[in-house]
């Protein structure tokens, strides 16, 4: 059994008197789709920010993609991908310019950027639209492009922070297909979401309330355990 890709132990973050994340511990296996659920203010964002090396934990420890989030946040950053709920591409740059920029940011050589850009365009079906400004693309395509761009440096883990917020159901479904492909390719997907039906697509889900982990398991097991028909009911029972 290989080493888990994310190992979090007793991770805590305080803002003054307020404890946003309260001694959480979990592990994520390589290649897993890991759902991170919780109401607004449950501490999801704070937890993700710590995992990405953006925020220093008050206490506890964590390893992400083999790098220590306390001692070496910059190494963490270079090994992960990130896509936020707010659109993360530049709308006034073209498809190709965006890809090149992110390739450059992650320090890829020009030839490599070129090769991967071609693969990426092929995979997302954006052929012929390389020079189109991203702002002119339909939202669904932008979202796909954003995810592919977040993967341009072939990270071991990709963090998706509510990637499907405000997107229509069909695009959401297509987006999840891309997530499956990504995970099948060996990249671990760490995803937060508001939509409980999406939780069903995850290999395992973790539900947070008030800065603590209330449940963490496969969706089927959680449903059985809480005697619920779907994840929505599970969530409501826990959040109450």
């Amino acid at each position: 059994m290989p080493e888990p890709i994310i190992i979090i132990k007793e991770l805590t973050r305080k803002f003054g008197d307020f404890t946003a994340v309260n001694h959480i511990s979990f592990e994520v296996e390589a290649g897993e789709i890991f759902g991170f659920l919780g109401a607004n203010g449950a501490g999801k964002t704070t937890a993700i920010r710590m995992l990405c090396g953006l925020l220093k934990p008050s206490s506890g420890s964590g390893m992400v993609a083999g790098a220590d989030i306390l001692k070496n946040p910059n190494l963490v950053k270079s090994r992960i991908g990130y896509m936020s709920q707010r659109f993360s591409l530049y709308e006034d740059l073209s498809v190709m310019e965006n890809i090149r920029l992110y390739g450059g940011i992650y320090g890829l050589k020009k030839a490599l950027v070129k090769k991967r850009a071609a693969q990426l365009i092929e995979k997302t079906g954006l052929n012929g639209l390389e020079k189109r400004l991203v702002g002119d693309l339909p939202l669904g395509w932008r979202q796909k492009l954003a995810l592919s761009t977040a993967l341009i440096h072939r990270p071991q883990v990709v963090f998706l922070d509510e990637p499907t917020g405000g997107v229509d159901p069909i695009t959401r479904k297509q987006f999840w297909e891309m997530i499956y492909e990504t995970a099948a390719g060996g990249t671990t997907v760490f995803v937060t979401t508001h939509y409980m039906d999406e939780a069903e697509y995850c290999d395992r889900v973790c539900i947070m309330t008030e800065g603590m982990i209330r449940a963490l398991d496969k969706p089927d097991i959680l449903k059985k355990k809480y005697d619920a028909g779907n994840m929505d009911e599970v969530f409501l029972k826990l959040a109450r």
Partner: peptide, 14 residues
């Protein structure tokens, strides 16, 4: 405002 700063911050660029 557009949220792209967040993405830059998550990148290894200082």
């Amino acid at each position: 405002e557009q949220g792209t700063m967040e993405v830059l911050m998550v990148s290894p660029v200082k």
